[in-house]
Write a protein that binds this DNA or RNA. Structure first.
Lengths: 211, 211
DNA sequence: CAACTCATGTAAGGGGCTTTAACATGATTC
DNA sequence: GAATCATGTTAAAGCCCCTTACATGAGTTG
């Protein structure tokens, strides 16, 4: 550095990093007021540019939201991969970590989570979003395969079905109980404990006792 | 009937049933364009009144949405009660019906479902909504109690936890796979089959084998 | 380094939605 | 029948979306 611009405090005619600044502002606004409470004009204001400037970087409001969702899925996939950690130290323990990471993401990144699952981002609008979403899911799928490998081949369940079950359970708990707004439903336990118990019971149902 | 009004076709100065007409219009719009795509002006247009008229019946846009959500929860609770049918013919079979009813509601009443779970209706804004939501959940709770009664008392799981698991699983499957938009994720099975299999495995994990 | 070019900003404006305030209508009540 | 009140209408202020035409200045090229 620095061919300056942003470095030179007040900034001149050009912002220098508007795209990123807008996404950051969007995240703040979504976290604060939900995905519906976010609007381009306010993001522009937060970035210190005119209301028209964002349109140089995003076709429209939905495109910005889709970009936020995309980044969310990417971070999400990373977090899940890291939690899974290739099944170490043991597939079951690693699956527990995966579940915890799912809930942690919903809780700690409410803005990303909302953009990913609550803003109705037209799914087909960007193939990138679908792909990133698939990558996150594939971590779960991989985990299920590792766990299934512990079961005698003849009684092994379909791993796709298994991963869909676990995904749905995790997503249901996250959406209903682990998000800021909905978390107000009073629970007799933490969402993490709820999920862990659910996973344990489900795996037992599959015949995975040994852990 | 009929002290007329609405009966007299073209309607005069007063609509006669605007509140209901607005809710109906809101449902149509939500079904068509999602909860974010609904707006008061268009609902008013659909009802044939001026854009300001709705404010005689609803404080603001959110209040209308909350009312839709409330009605949704009421219908939802009814549908679940009917599906459960007091545990007939057998608790397990009735639970399956309950699950199917959950998915059917998400699929067949996308507008209600969206208003209930996707429009961010401030949860504390109306105690009524919470209560209606609780009533729907209590059907599930009741079902779990009936099922638990089949288990020897000493190995009986906490019914609250059990009902939360089943709720989360159902909700996850409904949200991820059984709604119009998200249903595009390709599945190797119907959401109904997925849920039924998940329930079966979970119950087996709980020690409920006999069915 | 001067001129060009292009990405990135600004200004201005049309069109739509939200919500309020003041006024109109007519259904209900006494 | 007159008074009252719920329920509509009109008008208007404020905000947002997005487009178009124009401005700036960073990078490129001779």
């Amino acid at each position: 550095m620095s061919w300056s611009k942003k470095a030179g405090k007040g900034r001149g005619y050009h912002h220098g990093n508007l795209r990123e600044a807008l996404i950051a502002a969007a995240l703040d606004l979504i976290a604060e007021k939900g995905p519906a409470g976010f609007n381009i004009a306010e993001a522009a204001r937060a970035a210190g540019v005119s209301p028209a400037a964002p349109y140089r970087h995003f076709r429209d409001r939905d495109a910005l939201m889709a970009d936020v969702a995309l980044r969310g899925f990417e971070r999400f996939a990373e977090a899940l991969e890291q939690a899974w950690d290739n099944g170490k130290p043991h597939p079951y323990r690693a699956l527990e970590n995966l579940g915890r990471a799912y809930l942690a993401f919903a809780r700690n990144e409410p803005a990303y989570y909302a953009a990913m699952f609550e803003a109705q981002v037209p799914r087909d609008s960007s193939r990138e979003v679908s792909q990133a979403s698939d990558r996150a899911f594939s971590v779960l799928r991989q985990a299920c395969e590792a766990l299934c490998a512990l079961i005698p081949a003849e009684s092994r369940p379909p791993t796709l079905m298994m991963s869909l079950h676990i995904w749905a359970l995790s997503h249901g708990i996250a959406s209903l109980f682990a998000r800021g707004d909905s978390a107000r439903r009073k629970l007799p336990m933490t969402p993490e404990d709820l999920l862990e118990a659910g996973l344990l019971l489900y795996l037992r149902g599959l015949g995975l006792e040994g852990l």
